[in-house]
Simulated assay, not measured.
Amino acid sequence: MTGVLPSQRLTAMIGRGEIAADQPFATGQVQPASLDLRLGRVAYRVRASFLTGEGQTVSDRLPLFEMHKIDLSDGAVLEKNCVYVVELQERLALPAGIGAVANAKSSTGRLDLLTRVITDGGVEFDRIGKGYAGPLYAEICPRSFSVLVRPGMRLNQIRFRDGQVVLDDDALARLHADVGLVSGEAVISEGLGFSVDLRPQGTTLVGWRAKPHTGVIDLDKLDHYPVAEYWERVESADGRIILDPGAFYILVSREAVHIPPDYAAEMAPYVAMVGEFRVHYAGFFDPGFGHAAAGGTGARGVLEVRCHEAPFVLEHGQIVGRLVYERMAEPPEQLYGQGIASNYQGQGLKLSKHFQAP
């Protein structure tokens, strides 16, 4: 029964107090293979991002970097290119064999919000050691847009693991042969490789680039903001684009991917040396994503791309990332897209849910 813990196991952990919260857990907070984490009431503007370090607590370290404290109760703006630390409503008292990993939610990444979890004694972002007991904090740095946040908003999610459950390349190849994990040829090397689509059929629109000077985005407002006020169209007639240093792009994978009910996946960078860019944030893929029984026919991965120091030519079909598959300890009682609020089942090139249809 080792593997990624499904929703029913998370609910049991909540019942035992191994996952606790300041407020009652909200409807939909428990996802098929993860738990959404909620912002607390206070944000700290800090001078710089930091890790806690062994033997130290976040509350001990905050006074070294804190600039001022912000009450989020009535909503507050987190400004672009500033760093904030917010204590989350959830806290953990994990059993000895259970560890966890956190990641930004899909809509958070698509807004270019760098959002990472830190813990007491933590030496890595987004990694929670086995048996951890203590509070959780979100470090938030809006990169492209200033955002309005309130307590209870869900920017991060956390996935719990019992044991080592990542599929090696041989196991991944066998699974692809059995059920078909990706449309087209499977490129398997430390995960399932996927490439960028810069030749979509019937259009020259291949992506979106964040505008540099925009208004604030209220994260509670869905299907609200006109795309043209925040994004520029990225078009290509020849299957290539040039990424500008410092710019943030939303692109899409060429392949449609499939996550069977017994598995979960996480998007990871391909290799650091493929070019002057990074496929950033990238989140969790729940069991049932793109799965036919959950209403999917394969679903393409949305790519959150940031270019680094030099302009870089990105070409159609270039491998830009990989999916790392993990076994579930058992299938979740409800799959992604199956009667739950799953915003991105069957997606193609898609901005976050805060924007109107272009």
Score class of each variant (00 low, 15 high):
233 R>Q: 13
140 I>V: 15
197 D>W: 01
152 G>N: 04
206 V>W: 03
190 E>Q: 14
192 L>D: 06
191 G>K: 08
213 H>W: 11
154 R>D: 07
181 L>E: 03
225 Y>P: 07
223 D>P: 00
216 V>G: 02
150 R>A: 07
232 E>A: 10
143 R>N: 12
151 P>H: 05
162 D>I: 09
175 L>R: 10
235 E>L: 09
189 S>K: 15
167 L>T: 04
229 E>M: 00
128 I>C: 07
177 A>T: 00
191 G>M: 12
225 Y>C: 10
128 I>K: 11
150 R>K: 14
152 G>E: 03
172 L>S: 03
180 G>I: 09
149 V>M: 06
233 R>N: 12
208 W>V: 03
172 L>G: 05
188 I>G: 07
147 V>Q: 01
157 Q>Y: 00
155 L>C: 07
235 E>G: 05
128 I>D: 10
172 L>T: 02
233 R>M: 12
139 E>A: 03
137 Y>R: 07
153 M>R: 05
212 P>I: 03
144 S>G: 09
235 E>M: 09
179 V>N: 05
173 A>G: 07
135 P>A: 15
208 W>G: 04
134 G>R: 02
188 I>K: 02
215 G>V: 09
210 A>Y: 10
187 V>R: 08
222 L>E: 08
214 T>L: 04
181 L>Q: 02
178 D>P: 02
202 G>W: 01
138 A>W: 07
218 D>E: 12
217 I>S: 03
155 L>T: 00
218 D>S: 04
193 G>T: 05
195 S>H: 07
136 L>D: 06
183 S>K: 08
